[in-house]
Design a protein around this nucleic acid. Structure first.
Length: 715
DNA sequence: AATATCTTGCAGTCG
DNA sequence: GCAAGATATT
């Protein structure tokens, strides 16, 4: 057998990992050191050299995109399809298991997955039903709390209230929310993972069946696994499973989602005899880019410690551009992109990265103006658009009448005379009798409705029932097509003849073609094509949509750029408060996470890296003056040069940290006030005599102070 | 009950 | 600057 294609393209460290004997392996792999390659080659090695059946291998990736890429690279390397190899995200794999074993997992066969938006609606409605004040009990915070508990693997009964009143209330909300979901057969993202874990714990024979099957467990982006994912994996590994995990503590950017870098550090304790391999040679970026990235990340205190190096050239300096405002920033970036493509380079080799999705708009406007094709990743994804979710809600209700969330969403969309009062009656009746709202609607809420309302409700019930009848036996896309028409959604939008409505109709039609192009994987064996499609819509939310490999400039958040690489990279919005984000600057740990995010961003660049910031930025419709990001000041001067094409600009250029502006105030700065005591700067607004700072004082709370009056002492 | 107009709060990152 | 929610109007 010829193994040269598998091991020849590898360096020594990579080869050591790929050919390691069966036993736990931890690969600490820096950015661009070929970690995907190691995983792909390891799998190929197992199959071709060790003779492991693809059936016995489980590979976990972080995104669906990465999963698809891994599979195709393995197939390319082995030159054969490996359909029975399980590759997917934790969520995708958990879903697959729950579909297979819904009974053992205690779920209805028709359970459906909800996204964060659906989840929030359910919580909002719950708070309203309880007649509680939404400003005291903020739905978003309740949602955050519930998900955090689930990420830690905790059910309401296991959460410690710490004797705290409001915590006790949050636990109650968790309990109620969970009841609602269970009555409606709904499963949120975190629940997928928790249920899959409980599936192991509650069914030892099932577990051992999977333990026997999956001897080899490979995990990518291991630094971003959360407690429940890691627990799930450890249980599955048991005493016989052989984990092979790849990660980089410097690229851990999902702490806010429950991910824990400690998993990398603890791995060796959990799996005795672990072989550790370090990959530090970088094949991606120029020396300058690497040096700068190394310098930035060196400011973090909690690291395993690692320094990337390259045999390649130093390359060009990093370029820093101080824009006047966010439009100037976009102008600059797009002009550089045009120069790039005029030089014969490809647009798809360019990425514009930013901290938050809202930043994409200005770039889009400018790109459209100049006719440059682009693609935005993330943001408002296809399956998250309101009209698409309406259509999906019809489909879900058709498939599962107990889905109250979907019922509420579409019962009066388009308007059919079922208003708030009618709905209240139906809802109360349903709650009183512990039945789904659909049931309640069938009986006209036990006869409590007025004749007119009862008629309207009956017509709605008939629409859904008729839909199900008319659709049976049709291919998936025709089902979808029928439903968007029979629901009246299209007609409703047609009446409304503005541009936005037209775009929405196009989106609905796009949904039909998405259904036409959808092929259920083999994991969806037991599901109807419709249910499989609905699950796909929530889990992928359009990530793999529009895979039309047109030559497009790529716009995305720093988070979604993880794992990707581009010859030319722009990181925009390098301002304190934006990046690092204002919510992360008051806490050392989250600030370090922001710094890792910066490191991730910088190491995406292969040849050229631009960092831009705006001196003035419009946020929420008001102009704010910001300071250059502290991360910029962490780059040694020999690695960058400033770009300043505009002449006669009164504003000075990029300032080093210690040159004071606004009296040296920056976010996160600790200050002392004569009366209020010690605090932390949360915001800076304006400049000169009008400059104001927002300070969170330890004892006096949050206050806005005019800088020229309040004599704040820097600490 | 539906439609038109206003006000509010908002956006931190993801599957 | 935009969308959802609240309020006013028909």
């Amino acid at each position: 057998m010829d193994v040269t294609p598998i091991i020849d393209p590898l360096n020594d460290a990579q080869r050591e990992a790929v050919t390691a004997p069966a036993g736990p392996v931890l690969v600490v792999a820096g950015a661009g050191s070929g970690k995907t390659r190691v995983l792909v080659h390891r799998i190929a090695w197992l199959i071709q050299v060790e003779g492991v059946s693809p059936l016995g291998i489980l590979a976990v990736t972080f995104t669906n995109k990465a999963a698809a890429e891994m599979r195709s690279r393995i197939e390319q390397l082995l030159d054969m399809p490996v359909a029975n190899l399980w590759v997917g995200t934790f969520h995708g794999l958990a879903h697959r298991l729950l579909r297979r074993h819904w009974r053992e997992a205690g779920l209805p066969q028709t359970f459906q997955i909800i996204d964060a938006d659906d989840q929030q609606r359910i919580i909002k409605r719950m708070i309203r039903n309880l007649d509680l004040d939404e400003s005291t009990w903020v739905p978003r915070e309740i949602q955050w709390f519930i998900n955090a508990q689930k990420d830690e693997g905790l059910r309401p009964g296991n959460v410690d209230d710490r004797g705290d009143h409001s915590r006790r209330q949050l636990i109650k909300f968790y309990e109620m929310y969970q009841d609602t979901c269970e009555r409606s057969g709904l499963v949120d993202f975190a629940e997928l993972l928790l249920r899959a874990h409980e599936l192991w714990l509650g069914n030892p024979e099932l577990l051992s069946q999977y333990q026997r099957r999956f001897r080899h467990l490979l995990v990518d982006e291991f630094q971003d696994t959360n407690a429940i994912q890691y627990a799930w994996l450890r249980v599955l590994a048991g005493d016989t499973g052989v984990p092979f995990v790849v990660g980089d503590d410097d690229q851990s950017i999902y702490r806010w989602r429950g991910a824990r870098v400690e998993h990398i550090r603890n791995f060796r304790n959990h799996f005795p005899g672990t072989k550790t391999v370090r990959l530090e040679q970088n094949y991606r970026s120029t020396g300058t880019i690497l040096n700068a990235a190394n310098a930035i990340i060196a400011n973090n205190s909690t690291r395993l410690g690692k320094k990337l190096w390259t045999e390649g050239d130093q390359g060009e300096p990093i370029r820093i551009y101080a824009a006047y405002n966010e439009r100037d920033e976009a102008d600059f970036v797009v002009n550089r992109i045009v120069e790039w493509t005029n030089g014969g380079e490809r647009r798809s080799d360019v990425a514009v990265l930013y901290r938050s999705n809202a930043q994409s708009r200005v770039f889009e406007e400018r790109l459209i103006q100049l006719g440059v094709p682009y693609r935005v990743y993330g943001g408002l994804r296809f399956f998250e658009r309101a009209e698409i979710k309406d259509a999906l809600a019809y489909l879900r209700l058709m498939s599962n009448r107990a889905d109250d969330a979907s019922f509420e969403r579409v019962v009066n969309v388009p308007p059919r005379g079922i208003g708030a009062r009618t709905l209240d009656t139906v809802r109360n009746y349903a709650r009183g009798n512990a039945i789904p709202m659909w049931q309640a609607a069938l009986t006209g809420a036990g006869g409590q409705l007025s004749a007119r309302a009862a008629g309207a409700v009956a017509r709605f019930v008939e629409i859904i029932d008729a839909m199900e009848r008319d659709v049976s036996g049709l291919p998936l896309h025709e089902q979808v097509d029928h439903v968007i028409r029979a629901s009246g959604l299209i007609e409703h939008l047609e009446k409304n003849k503005n541009e936005r409505a037209e775009a929405r109709i196009e989106n609905l039609e796009e949904l039909v073609s998405a259904a036409r192009g959808y092929e259920p994987g083999d994991e969806e064996e037991d599901m109807t094509p419709l249910d499989a499609f609905l699950a796909h819509a929530v889990l992928e939310s359009g990530e793999t949509q529009g895979e039309s490999w047109d030559d497009c400039v790529q716009l995305m958040t720093l988070h979604s750029a993880k794992g990707l690489e581009f010859p030319l990279v722009f990181i925009a919005g390098m301002e304190d408060g934006l990046f690092p984000h204002r919510r992360s600057v008051t806490d050392a740990e989250s600030l370090e996470e922001e710094r890792r995010l910066c490191y991730v961003g910088a190491t995406r660049a292969m040849r050229q890296l631009y960092l831009t910031y705006a001196e003035q930025r419009r946020l929420h419709g008001v102009d704010n003056f910001g300071q250059p990001s502290r991360f910029l000041t962490e780059i040694p001067e020999e690695f960058f040069e400033e770009v300043r094409p505009r002449v006669n600009i009164s504003q000075p250029v990029f300032r080093r940290r210690d040159e004071p502006q606004s009296g040296g105030m920056r976010l996160g700065q600790r200050v002392r006030h004569r009366k209020f005591g010690d605090g932390v700067v949360l915001g800076v607004e304006g400049s000169g005599a009008h400059a104001r700072v927002q300070v969170n004082f330890e004892s006096a709370g949050t206050k806005w102070l005019v800088m020229s009056y309040a004599k704040l002492e820097l600490m």
